[in-house]
């Protein structure tokens, strides 16, 4: 439970890094802007966006984002 809260807090922090205009969602363009801040290629950021955008509506909700983050954490624990 405590870990869950910490995870959500982190996910929220990261969401805000991506959602610079505080729109409440992340667009493909927001994701590509991270190219300047993160050591990832535009192609990789596209892939991240597509992976997180599970409903394929072209924007990432905080829920989609935190779901992706918790999946990442789960995989980290397994490996």
């Amino acid at each position: 439970p405590e870990q869950q809260l910490a995870m959500l807090g982190k996910a929220h922090e990261f969401f805000q890094i991506c959602d610079v205009e505080s729109k409440g969602f992340i667009t493909r363009g927001d994701m590509q802007r991270l190219h300047n801040e993160l050591p990832l290629s535009l192609e990789e950021l596209e892939k991240v966006f597509d992976t997180l955008d599970t409903d394929g509506n072209g924007s990432l909700s905080p829920e989609e984002f935190s779901t992706g983050f918790s999946q990442f954490l789960a995989e980290q624990k397994v490996s």
């Binding site: 990261f14 993160l38 990789e44 950021l45 892939k47 991240v48 597509d50 990442f72």
Partner: peptide, 29 residues
């Protein structure tokens, strides 16, 4: 196999992305 290299799978690329965010956060107090 080119698909085996790190970051080629969606899981790998997602891990890359979140790891970068994590190190970005810890990198700046």
């Amino acid at each position: 196999d080119p698909n085996m290299k790190a970051g080629a799978t969606s899981e790998g690329v997602l891990a890359n992305f979140f790891n970068s965010l994590l190190s970005k956060k810890t990198g700046s107090p």
